[in-house]
Structures are given as structure tokens and as C-alpha cells.
Design a protein around this nucleic acid. Sequence first.
DNA 1: AGCGATATGTAGCAGGTGCTACAAGGATAA
DNA 2: TTATCCTTGTAGCACCTGCTACATATCGCT
Lengths: 182, 182
Amino acid sequence: MQNTPLSRETLLPPLAAHVLEHGLGGASLRPLAKAAGTSDRMLIYHFGNKETLISDLLEYIAGIYSAGLDAGMGTERAATRQEVLAKILAQGREPMMQPFLVLWWEIVAGSARGIPGYKEAAAEMMTRQLAWLETQMPADDPDPVGGARYLLTLIEGTLMLGAVGHARTAREGLLASDLSGD
Amino acid sequence: MQNTPLSRETLLPPLAAHVLEHGLGGASLRPLAKAAGTSDRMLIYHFGNKETLISDLLEYIAGIYSAGLDAGMGTERAATRQEVLAKILAQGREPMMQPFLVLWWEIVAGSARGIPGYKEAAAEMMTRQLAWLETQMPADDPDPVGGARYLLTLIEGTLMLGAVGHARTAREGLLASDLSGD
DNA sequence: AGCGATATGTAGCAGGTGCTACAAGGATAA
DNA sequence: TTATCCTTGTAGCACCTGCTACATATCGCT
């Protein structure tokens, strides 16, 4: 009956799609299995238990995210930190990114609460974003490494405020800063 | 048997304590009721359903948080933005604040996902924190309103990075900024 | 052809979920 | 006293939870 052989590799993409749409918190085996065209029985068979399923899934999603960052990197370099910031925040406002952002806060929450697998995935994604951000810094930036960390802090703060309906607060805060870097 | 009459008001404090310790995600009626010394039956009776229970609880917790901010406000004013930032981040590192922070990310996640009641509570808490932050700005700050928004963005970004194990990244980022304000 | 390993379907278990039906206590008002 | 309303306890329902026992089916290998 099945056309494609079942394995972790073939299962993870539809599982990730389901989680991106419906979230991690309410993700239970039977809906997940349905999204992957299988049964809960098979998910347990291939992953052992739910906890490692979620861990593997988070790792996989972190991988997609990293790949997406690399792919979405524009060709021309920004000239100022403001431009870098504006470019990234604009990217975060794109509809395509929304499910990712929503899931992201769930991962942060799980990480803060110490749920197995969450902190690893979250830290991995942040490390990747930081590395990517360093490549995006202006060519003449006096301190690209520190600047990237500074911008990352501002970006995450802005995203958080946006998530709770305070996008305007963050925008006004950024306007009130100069971002000069020295 | 019961010494204190049951009502929303008497139920909310023990419920909030339970949620601060065990989180919102896994909070189900029977454990919540047990923490409050009642039965799930009574929780439904007094709140109607679980959704309004959680909404009321979030509102109540937001209230505690605001009160705590007011109470925790030091007497002497900081002289520079760096001092304000350092003071607040030090406060966020206190053990007493940890359950609150952990819960906070769950609220942010719920807000981002649009779960009823979460966005209201989160926005309320941010509004309060912003107002409090404005009162904390240095007396000679050139732009206390914008500066408070800027600092709030930095604070939340720092807290988020801390939640995912990147506290050091945020610290280095803040060192690389000057925070001057003009 | 026979055999063992891998893979999958069906059924089900023990426990948890939000919520409700029903009855009964207790206070209060007539 | 009787009637009424507010509050509470006991059972229970229908469903969902992760996971498992058991029986097949399918495959490569000898």
C-alpha cells in the first residue's frame, strides 16, 4: 500500500509541517501520525517514544531554519547597522516566517522550562542566527562581532515585543537609539 | 469542612502559585483543584469553564507582577542608562524571579499563537513594565520616553537569549553598545 | 523453498481530559 | 415551617493520552 518507505527521514518533513502549523504543545501522536499518513503505532516504532520524536523533530526544524537563513541571505551587503536591522526585521515580518516565529516562542518557553530537547534546539538556532548575522554586518563596522551580538539582542527583543502586541513600542525604541557602534 | 468560603478571589492565589511552579501548558483541572484544596467540579462551578479560569488567572498574575514591580522599585534613581539596565537585569537574575520568567515565556508563546487571554495579559504586563521603566530613567536623560522603549527592547532581548542559554551573547552585545541616547 | 529479520495493521489498556447529571447540605427569606 | 437559592460531593461520560501485545505481511538470504 505504501509507496514511500517509512523512516525517520521520510517522516520528519510532514511532522515538521504539522508542528509548524499547529504548534508543539498540543502535538499528540495520533494527529501527528495522521499528518504523516501513518499510525501512532508507527511513530513509536520508528522513534522509540514521543520524547525522542520531539527531540529529533526540533533538531530537524533547527536544520530547516539554518538552511532558510543561508538561502534568504541577500547578495548585496548592508552599509550600516540600521540597514542590517531593518532588513532582518522586514524579513521577520514576512507572512512565510510567521509560523516559524510562533513556533519559536514555544521553543523558547520549553527551553526556559527545561523540557528535554528544547534548549539544544533553541541554542542551536540562536548560534546559527548569530553566525549569519556576523556575515551581514557592514564591511566597515568597527566591531562586527560585538555588533552582531548587540543587534541580535535588539532583534529578539523587538520580535518578543511584537509577539505580545507591542511592536510599536519596539519601533519607537529603535528610533530613539543611534546604533552607532562606538 | 472548609474554613474559608470558596470564590474566585480565594481560589486565584493558590491557583497562581501552582501555575508559577508547574507552568500553564500542563495545567489541568484536577491538579489545579488539588492545589487549591477543592475539586475540578468546583473550579468549573466558579469559573464556568477552563478557558475563563485561565484568562482570569493570567489577569490575576499580571496584577501580582505589576504590584511586585512597584514594590521592588528602589529608592535611589540610577544616574545613567547603563545603571538602569544593570539594575533591572540584576533583578531578573534573582532566584525569586525565575518562576515568573519561566512562566513569562509560556505567556509569550500563548500570545504569539493567539490563545484567548494570553495576549491581553502579556500586553498588560509589558505596558506596566514600560511605565515603570520610564520612572526609572535617569533624571537628566535627553529622551526618557524613547529611552525606556529602547531599554525595554534590550532587556527583553537579553532575557530571551538568557532563556535559551545565550546569556553570554547578550552580555557581550550590551558591552559592544554605548547606550548613549543621542 | 524455508527462515529470520524488519515492518505494519488491529485492538486494546490504564490513566488523564474537560465537563455534566443528580442529589444533598445549608443558609436565607416568606 | 416551608420554599428557594447558593454551594458542594459523588459518579460518571465520552474522548484523548502514550504505549503495548499480538498477529501478520514482506523482504533478503541461504
